[in-house]
Write a protein that binds this DNA or RNA. Structure first.
Length: 923
RNA sequence: GCCUCCGUAGCUCAGGGGUAGAGCGCUCCCUUGGUAAGGGCGAGGUCAUGAGUUCAAAUCUCAUCGGAGGCUCCA
């Protein structure tokens, strides 16, 4: 009689043993193929979330699989430990960020250990340690020397409430994600990285196995466009105004110009009589929040500067306006406005009574376009008109030089010196200064206007500890004289580095976290780089994942990998291309969401009009509490679109339109309510503390054991999609592991065994290996586990029927446990030990798939009549066409439907990889 | 508005031109000395909708509807 499966005891035992025996220590071994598996490092918030488990344990399973397949696997872990929450904790709870962060890291290390992952803790790196940020600073200096890091002014997201610049990712819907306060735009002098210099190279994903969606997002984010640059002058011949356009073929239709309100020239060209109005407008736009700017269908506002420009292509005099629909951050911050062929310009022209002139005439239109008849801009193809020598050129849908009209105009612009071909990017340089304390110091000093880098030997510039955390919203460093005052004239930079800079190179620090002579050890880098598989959330698509690619390319160009390349050559490996990209394969996991929720139960009363009720009163009541005599619609809200409720009334959906002035009564929300506050069913939502639907992994491990939780996460979701949490479903994997345990610990069966049944189990085992291999390769963990469940079911049935002898049982156990090891490492290790095999199952080779053993001998030949299956005939697996057709035609089904006549045709479809052979008889 | 992905059993998901699949849940039966459990049998699907291609479409194409994510005055 076997012991029942008790996860806790065995899990803790094995975690300890793995540590003690350094089972997962990864060391350079040039004789073995390497595999660098990496999962995005967590922020030490203090509690491991179920999302971390979901991201990390499948990656761990895959890394374990690679290891068993004979690779030398590196699977490190660390912490992205700088960031605002630590500083907030310091302000609100008076705990120093160091203390808060380190305490959290301690706690999270323990939680991470409970996963049973094969992390090599000797390679742990923590970005907020001086040993780490010394090299972040060092990189900054190298970037500065190469002109990649520079100080410049730019429009930034400024939070008035926090008195700091915010990163783009911290601005959600125009509001600061922490305080919910609106964000404004402000011109500020800051440090930047010239990521735009790498825009073209970053658009090249050659050889990268990354999700298509990420490549597309990065491509869109970089936003390369092709067109032309042209220079307009003011009518007095001064002040050249550079413009960029993707439609140089519409230059002759430019009837005015617009500058962004922040444009440098605004002040210079504005005429005295317009000065007051212009100043007023600039002031208003500066106060505008991101939210206001994002409103759809905004009225196109703007002010005339009083100045005129000369259109270089036709010498026409056109007015210069300023308007906030032109962004200082895109292109040159100034445009030529062609209202006839650009919707925004059209709206502006109509709002301010400016000329609209057609210069592209569509060919296949009944009525030619005229400015009077147009109700919107026309941006389709056509023939150039009103464009002097260019008239008649054909403009197509194509962009850039591929458009004949654009091609011709660019040639002409270049020949006449009025403009030139140009490429523009939406991508902006990376703003890396933060007005915060808890970040890597920027190793720069100022003597007046002069910028002085901190000498390398003085790195790292360390963060002072004895600072006052006052809730001023400003970095304590700006008040800390010993820090910023170098001497009477030299002042140290008090801004700190964006944390994304620290996480742009952590994959390098893992290689040698203790190295103090260089950011990483060349020999280690030569062996392990690049990262072979990187897993993490898609939310980092255009931030972290773009930055780290950029970083890698800069390091390559400034020679940081030179020693590593030399080491590779020494070991006979070609360094060509090894340092161009940080990660070869990328996969994103989805998100585990909160479970579904019941909708409100409502009583609706009003008038019934046709199919639906127009309700003037909706009351939320206790579930199923319908007062006697109520004759309206009642039930659960299944769905809501705008103000139409889909009410599930005893299984029938009733539609209720809630009138705008309807009374809505929700007992737990006193006062006036509106239709948006009604809750509908099936609302799958993010987990958050405020919603009370957070799943705590520690409790789950306590309840079910780590192996069950791992398997549940891998089995119950499509990993790349995620989905709603449903703890009921954990019973599936739980039952599976219990059964496997039962089978393994029950000891060998006493039965004789049946050769056919044993052969069948062997066949199923090999078929299972094939599916697991494919599942792991393709990150389809759920299918890999489902197949093992099926195998267990088959094995269990065979054992029950006393078909399996001891010897076969032992062989099957040996392979089955190895197959299970990557998914449920603890239970596999324990069963392996109990069956008397040597430590450790994780050091065993992965079971070899044998196609011969997986092969079926007999299969069902499917007889189809006109494509519909009618009958099956058991045949040999390698049946030939002629024999199959013969058999099919003589089958009962065929005889019946043919009725003595000859078939039109009989199509044989050989069975391949698991499908049965078929013959389709067309009658 | 634009781009990407997705609609298969009650739920979560495989499959992907050739017989509709898994786990959970559910029905019924057995066990009640593995018991906040175990075993067995079974039901359940117009593969979102409509058209096209094909001997054959859940699968390929197009359109429509619905869902998720990203970008968004990008000149």
């Amino acid at each position: 009689m076997s012991e029942t499966y008790q996860p806790h005891a065995i899990e803790v035992k094995w975690q300890r043993k793995w540590d003690e025996t350094k089972l997962y220590r990864s060391e350079v071994d040039w004789d073995k193929p390497k595999h660098y598996a990496l999962t995005m490092l967590p922020y030490p918030s203090g509690d491991l979330h179920i999302g971390h488990w979901f991201a990390m344990t499948p990656s761990d399973a895959r890394a374990r699989w690679m290891r068993m397949k004979g690779y030398n696997v590196l699977f490190p872990m660390g912490f992205d430990a700088f960031g605002l929450p630590a500083e907030q904790a310091a302000i609100s709870r008076n705990i120093h960020p160091w203390k808060w962060t380190y305490a959290n890291i301690e706690r999270m290390r323990e939680q991470l250990r409970s996963m049973g992952a094969m992390f090599d803790w000797e390679r742990e790196a923590i970005s907020c340690t001086p040993e780490y940020y010394k090299w972040s600073e060092w990189f900054f200096k190298r970037f500065y020397e190469q002109g990649i890091a520079y100080r410049g002014s730019a429009m930034v997201n400024w939070s008035e409430s926090l008195q700091t610049v915010l990163a783009n990712e911290q601005v959600i819907d125009g509001k600061d994600e922490r305080t919910g306060q609106p964000v404004v735009h402000k011109m500020m002098e800051q440090w930047f990285f010239a990521i735009t210099k790498y825009a073209d190279e970053l658009l090249d994903f050659e050889g990268m196995d990354w999700p298509e969606s990420i490549k597309i997002m990065q491509t869109n984010w970089i936003g390369r466009s092709e067109g032309a640059r042209a220079t307009f002058h003011t009518e007095i011949g001064k002040h050249p105004i550079e413009i960029y356009t993707t439609r140089p073929d519409t230059l002759w239709g430019a009837t005015f110009m617009v500058l962004a309100p922040e444009h440098d020239l605004v002040d210079k060209i504005t005429k005295p009589e317009q000065r007051a109005a212009v100043a007023e407008y600039i002031h208003e736009t500066a106060l505008e929040t991101e939210i206001e700017r994002m409103l759809e269908h905004r009225e196109k506002t703007g002010v005339f500067t009083g100045a005129y420009a000369i259109n270089p292509v036709n010498d026409e005099r056109i007015p210069i306006w300023i308007a906030d629909y032109v962004m200082i951050t895109y292109g040159t911050g100034a445009i030529m406005a062609v209202p006839a062929h650009d919707q925004r310009d059209f709206e502006f022209a109509r709002a301010h009574d400016l000329e609209v002139r057609v210069v592209i005439q569509p060919e296949a239109m009944a009525e030619p376009l005229t400015s009077d008849s147009m109700t919107e801009a026309y941006d389709g193809p056509g023939v150039m008109v009103n464009s002097d020598a260019m008239d008649g050129s054909l403009s197509t849908w194509r962009k850039g030089r591929k458009n004949p009209a654009i091609n011709r105009v660019i040639d002409w612009l270049e020949a006449t010196g009025k403009g030139e071909e140009a490429v523009n990017y939406r991508l902006r340089d990376w703003l890396i200064s933060r007005q915060r304390y808890w970040g890597g110091p920027i190793p720069m000093m100022y003597d007046g206007d002069e910028i002085i880098p901190v000498p390398d030997e003085d790195l790292p510039v360390e963060l002072p500890e004895d600072v006052d955390f006052m809730p001023t919203g400003r970095s304590p460093l700006t008040y800390h004289e010993p820090f910023f005052k170098v001497n009477d004239s030299v002042r140290r930079e008090t801004d700190t580095l964006d944390t994304f800079m620290c996480s742009s190179w952590y994959q390098l620090r893992y290689l040698s976290p203790d190295c103090d002579t260089a950011p990483f050890d060349a020999e280690e880098a030569a062996y392990w780089l690049p990262v072979d598989v990187y897993t993490g959330g898609a939310e980092h698509a255009v931030m972290h994942l773009l930055y780290t690619r950029f970083f890698t390319k800069v390091l390559r160009d400034i020679g940081v990998y030179a020693d590593a390349a030399a080491a590779m050559r020494r070991h006979g490996r070609d360094p060509e291309g090894a340092f161009d990209e940080p990660m070869t394969v990328l996969r994103n996991q989805g998100q585990v969401l909160g479970g579904e929720r019941q909708g409100d139960f409502v009583l609706c009363s009003g008038r019934v009009v046709g199919e639906r009720m127009q309700a003037d009163r909706v009351e939320v009541v206790d579930w199923n509490q319908v007062p006697a005599g109520f004759d309206g619609i009642f039930g659960e809200i299944a769905h809501r679109t705008e103000d139409v409720l889909h009410v599930n009334m005893a299984g029938v959906t009733q539609f209720v339109e809630v009138l705008p002035d309807a009374g809505i009564i929700i007992p737990e929300i006193p006062g006036e309510n509106n239709v948006n506050q009604l809750r509908h069913h099936l609302d799958i939502q993010r987990m958050s503390k405020s919603k009370g639907n957070v799943v705590n992994p520690d409790e789950l491990v306590e309840k079910y054991g780590a192996d069950v939780v791992r398997c549940y996460l891998m089995f119950n979701f499509d990993w790349q999609k995620g989905g709603p949490w449903n703890e009921n479903n954990i019973k599936g994997p739980q039952g599976w592991l219990h059964d496997v345990w039962e089978i393994a610990t029950a000891g060998p069966p006493s039965a004789e065994g049946d050769a056919a049944a044993e052969r069948d189990i062997e066949r199923k085992l090999h078929q299972t290996i094939a599916v697991i291999n494919r599942g792991l390769k393709e990150f389809s963990f759920n299918t890999a586990i489902a197949e093992q469940m099926k195998f267990k079911n088959a094995l269990k049935a065979a054992l029950r029927d006393d078909c399996i002898g001891a010897e076969v049982w032992r062989g099957v156990m040996n392979q089955m446990i190895r197959l299970l090891a990557p998914f449920a490492p603890h239970i596999a290790e324990e069963m392996w030990l109990r069956l008397g095999w040597d430590y450790s199952v994780h050091s065993q080779p992965w079971p070899e798939y044998d196609a011969e053993k997986a092969r079926e001998e007999m299969v069902d030949l499917v007889v189809m009549i006109n494509g519909k299956p009618r009958e099956t005939i058991s045949v040999a697996v390698d049946i030939e066409r002629e024999r199959a057709q013969e058999l099919a035609l003589s089958s009962g089904a065929a005889q019946r439907s043919l009725g003595g006549k000859a078939p039109k045709r009989a199509i044989f479809i050989p069975g391949r990889n698991g499908t049965d052979p078929k013959v389709n008889i067309v009658v």
